[in-house]
Write a protein that binds this DNA or RNA. Sequence first.
RNA 1: GCACCCUUAGCUCAGUUGGUUAGAGCGCUUCAUUUACACUGAAGAGGUCGUAGGUUCGAAUCCUACAGGGUGCACCA
Length: 726
Amino acid sequence: MNEDFLKPYNHSHEKDIYNSWEKSGFFNPGNLTPNSSSLAPRPFSIIMPPPNSNGSLHVGHALTITVEDLMVRYWRMRGAPTLWLPGADHAGFETQVVFEKRLEKEGTSRFEILQKPNGREELYKRIWDFTQENKVHMEHQIRQLGASCDWSKETFTLDPKIVATVYETFKKLYDDGLIYRDTRIVNWCPKHQTTLSDLEVKYEERVDPLYYVKYGPITLATVRLETKFGDTAIAVHPSDARYKDLIGTEIEVEAIAGKTKIKIIADEHVDPTFGTGAVKVTPAHDADDYAIWQRHKDEIDGPRPVIDQWGKMSLLAYFADNADVMKYEGLRIAEARKHIAHDMQEKGLIEKVEEQYKHNVALCYKCGAVLEPRVLPQWFIDLTKEGVKKIVQPAIDAVKSKKIQIIPEFQEKIFLHWMENIRDWNISRQIVWGIPIPAWYKENSKLGEREEIYIGKEKPQDDGWVQETDVFDTWFSSGQWPFATLRAHGLEKEFYPTSVMETAYDILFFWVARMIMLGLYITGEVPFKTVYLHGLVRDKDKQKMSKSKGNVVDPLGIVEQYGADALRMALLVGNSPGQDASFDEAKVKGYRNFSNKLWNIARFVLSQGAIPNNSSDISSEDKKYIERMQEVKKEVAENIEKYRFSQAAEIAYHYVWHEFADKIIEEKKKDIIEGDEQKGNSARHVLYVLLTESLKILHPFMPFVTEAIYTRLPHKNAEFLMIEEW
RNA sequence: GCACCCUUAGCUCAGUUGGUUAGAGCGCUUCAUUUACACUGAAGAGGUCGUAGGUUCGAAUCCUACAGGGUGCACCA
């Protein structure tokens, strides 16, 4: 036995194999020569979802890499010009949150740094360095998983060419009247001091007291006592008999602030069955109330903010002279609410309290802070203006007409439902880490008025222009990723639209929907023909992996222990699209054993003397074995092409272990030992053929061990199994 | 509130145009014992495919209702 063909199979040479692949240049489609199976090669391309450059890869990334590499290796062997373009995402808000945690540990904060002269530049530079470190680390990890992606095309979302494309898109949207800067009530995270899009809001059920507050002749129910200082009206349903006579009048109210007057208005959106059927209207701190004000602008005052950007009471503007109110100044919301409740109860202004009132609270999806709605000028993409469904409708049509196929199919309904109810997209973020919005405006407007705007990086000639300091929502740039990356490398013509977008279902709206909309808007074509959505990888007990639970599986630790091949198989088998999977190390171990099984098959077959071309004298029995193998190969190919990866992997696995190894080898062993020369040679031939074909069949799933064996074959068609003809 | 997904072996899950004895990994039982491979082989136990109806010659698979688990969207103070 060859000295380097030792048992058991040692996966520690995976790195060497990867290096030789990468050095060969065959990850780059420009270096591939079409093989004979590719009579009419259609390009196959995948843009890798760029991992966030703010940490390490998790098992979900490993699944992404596995599934994509499987397709890429398969199509490469089929002779298609195959491009897999890797990248990394600066991941604006998310990265800044991670970095701010680090600053917290250092005993400082982003706000402290921003106070310094050039603080913004310093902070940006530090986060830049942080992401570049992570990026290098992640690239290394992606290699360890065996990803046959074209590193020469690697792209970062902040590369100058990408930023230039993002600016062009923004300008075009603006020129088409699809971008506006306007004052709206938006989601504000008081911890991280930025607005968030509607998608970045998570709702959580909380139990809070519901206060029934006396407003003169009316009693109304509210949780948010502390916003009462920003009330500008009371609203009731127009047909509510209880309040009919009061509608349109001003009532006098005894309150903490002393005697005040407040107007009663009628609005269809008030539910007469809730509470007392009357609702206080606080346009500055509630989205619904803001909407009510917009419908009654002529009758009542607009937003009267009494809570500041840090979530503290800010009453100076309206109550400077009122000591009874000013004593709450600077208190946090929760604290203020308690004090106010106490004081109002003392004054007999609270009729009753429903202590166990269940309601949903809006939280920041990333840090869990309670969001405070605020009225602020922000940049929006108009996705709803009547007759301007320039962006949304083509995306809906593309999916409905199956120009884009979504796998699994049920996700299509979820996609369409969201798209059909889409709202305008707030793309401005008040953070430093991101692509600056290239705009200037004149600060001469009041709430609700449009101001003069100039789009461009350079300051306009005349005076009075203020530069925008907001940056884009990360998803605005990553939403352009397929065409932006291909353009940056001059590959749009050859590879756009891409073949498959493979990612987790939890970013269907965040990312996939935006890519479809922006891709169609800019290029007129879909960005990809198929969307394959994999499920989330949970831990052994079906729990979501998280650092705080301490159940995060490090995929690279698994790779070190069992090999990337084993991890890949474990992630693939039993995994179906759109369905969450749980990660079990025992399963990985099982497929590690399979690597060893394959290795030993090869050791045996090669030790018998490999006969590759035996044109004559193959027994009819052996011919059947080859035919059977061809069937299996076809089945595996069909399943891969239909995106049934689990099936494909299982068929390949079952064939190689339980048919080839367990049955055929045992049979042929007898022929070699007991049979005559002809029978023996026929057996040697069929074993060698089945071995080489098994290597091909398994290569997309288990690239390392198959390549390691291929290297040791006495007869080869190609330099690498990776570029063998399927 | 609306929608979607899941419910199959002890555990985690496959099972895609409805069709013979329902599969995989791990676990379990018995046997084999130095073999290409113990990271092994052979044999086996274990399933009313959530419940109740329906369609059909035939249902884990299609339809309806219900129950339990989960997710998304919306949200009325």
